[in-house]
Design a protein around this nucleic acid. Sequence first.
DNA 1: AATGATGCGTTATGAGATAACATAACGAGT
DNA 2: ACTCGTTATGTTATCTCATAACGCATCATT
Lengths: 162, 162
Amino acid sequence: MDMGADCHHEDGVHPGLAGPVLADALVLAERRCAATQERLTAPRRRVLELLLESDGPQKAYDLIAAFGAHGEPAKPPTVYRALEFLERLGFAHRIESLNAYVPCRLDGQGHRAAFVICECCGAAEEFEPDFATQLAAAAPSGYAVRSVTLEARGLCPACQAG
Amino acid sequence: MDMGADCHHEDGVHPGLAGPVLADALVLAERRCAATQERLTAPRRRVLELLLESDGPQKAYDLIAAFGAHGEPAKPPTVYRALEFLERLGFAHRIESLNAYVPCRLDGQGHRAAFVICECCGAAEEFEPDFATQLAAAAPSGYAVRSVTLEARGLCPACQAG
DNA sequence: AATGATGCGTTATGAGATAACATAACGAGT
DNA sequence: ACTCGTTATGTTATCTCATAACGCATCATT
Ligand SMILES: [Zn+2]
Ligand SMILES: [Zn+2]
Ligand SMILES: [Zn+2]
Ligand SMILES: [Zn+2]
């Protein structure tokens, strides 16, 4: 993303979780895993924690660098495997046009995710579009659509004001 | 894309141009460049030709490998620069979720592009989403949307039939 | 305990894209 | 035709992003 050097706004509409709020989010994730016989193992939990703590979309290698509690990086497969798991369970999403990852900010687990991405400050906000009717009409010639990647670019409210 | 090994269908809804049809397309591109003071230089023209000849989305390094007339590959920046130019002028599009490139299959130059991608045969069909306004409404909390990346996955008509 | 399935640690490599700098081609003005 | 600013290309090196492959550890089931 080519964010001009003239952006004076704060990064991250989502401030990132910390303290008890973060702990609660992790406990909730534990519960949701337990309910489906999935295991929130240490590396998976750690990567989810890093995503939840973050202010905005995180690159895989940022997560790799931040993985260790005392500054030691993880090996790439450790983080990529965790991300694959978190995506599969709906705890995280990959933003294709950024090569970056965000924690899910919505409640539902099997939901379709879409994003608006601020070209100024880099914030990415998740929303759930009601595709079905729109896309069925828009898609051409008999394609049977099963999933959708929708990533919109623009300016967040703060960056419009500035 | 994870296309199962059980797909027996032909790749590419768009068969790829050749002969006089290809030549015509390149002449048209020349004209459109001339009309806006842009230069369709040799490497740009060559990359556009490779895209137009192709049956489906092309990876950058496929284009790099195929660039030379006698099998010599191009250097990566040569092709990436050409792709940047072709995208800027609307002659080609990048499909984010594939890391691949396609020639524009629609007429307008400044149009919004969207794709349906067959998970079985890999075909990618371009269409022009007409719901910009609806999207603006669907987007959350005051974001001003300026561009949209929309890539839908599913099955093309041929692969549904099989 | 033996078995099978899943997940992790590690090494190495593959795939995708760009930075940086020098040279070459163009094109407007003289 | 010459000069100069601009745009594009050639080249080298490097950077970012992601996965293959293998062996070991862990867990649940028998
Ligand atoms: Zn979500
Ligand atoms: Zn912003
Ligand atoms: Zn197009
Ligand atoms: Zn198909």
